[in-house]
Amino acid sequence: MSPAEAVAIIAAGFAAGAINVVVGSGTMITFPTLLALGYPPVVANVSNTVGLVPGSVVGAWGYRAELRGQRARVLRFAVAAVVGGAGGAVLLLALPPGAFEAVVPVLIVLACVLVAAQPWIAARLKERPNRREHGGPVVWLLVLAAAVYGGYFGAAQGVLLLAVLGLALQDTLQRLNAFKNVQAGLVNLVAGLVFMVVAEVDWAVAGSIAVGSAAGGLVGARIGRRLPPLGLRIVIVVVGVAAVVYLLTG
Rank of each mutant, 00 (worst) to 15 (best):
H134C: 04
H134N: 12
H134K: 10
H134W: 14
G135M: 13
G135F: 12
G135Q: 06
G136M: 09
G136K: 05
P137T: 09
V138I: 15
V139F: 08
V139L: 12
W140A: 13
W140P: 00
L141F: 14
L141D: 00
L142H: 06
V143Q: 04
V143G: 04
V143E: 07
V143I: 15
L144V: 08
L144H: 03
L144A: 05
L144R: 00
A145M: 08
A145W: 11
A145R: 08
A146W: 12
A146V: 14
A147I: 04
V148E: 00
V148M: 00
V148P: 03
Y149L: 09
Y149D: 00
Y149F: 15
G150D: 00
G151V: 04
G151E: 01
Y152I: 03
Y152N: 01
Y152M: 06
Y152F: 14
F153G: 01
F153M: 10
F153E: 03
G154C: 03
G154T: 01
A155S: 12
A155N: 06
A155P: 02
A155D: 01
A155V: 11
A156Y: 11
A156F: 14
A156S: 11
A156M: 09
A156T: 07
Q157M: 10
Q157S: 04
Q157N: 08
G158R: 07
G158Y: 03
G158P: 06
G158T: 04
V159W: 14
V159Y: 13
V159Q: 02
L160C: 04
L160I: 15
L161E: 04
L161M: 14
V164A: 07
V164G: 03
G166R: 06
G166A: 09
L167A: 01
L167R: 11
L167P: 11
L167V: 11
L167C: 05
A168H: 06
A168T: 08
A168I: 11
L169E: 09
L169S: 08
Q170N: 15
D171C: 10
D171G: 14
D171V: 05
T172I: 05
T172A: 08
T172E: 10
T172S: 15
L173G: 07
L173Q: 13
L173R: 11
L173I: 15
Q174A: 15
Q174G: 06
R175C: 12
R175K: 15
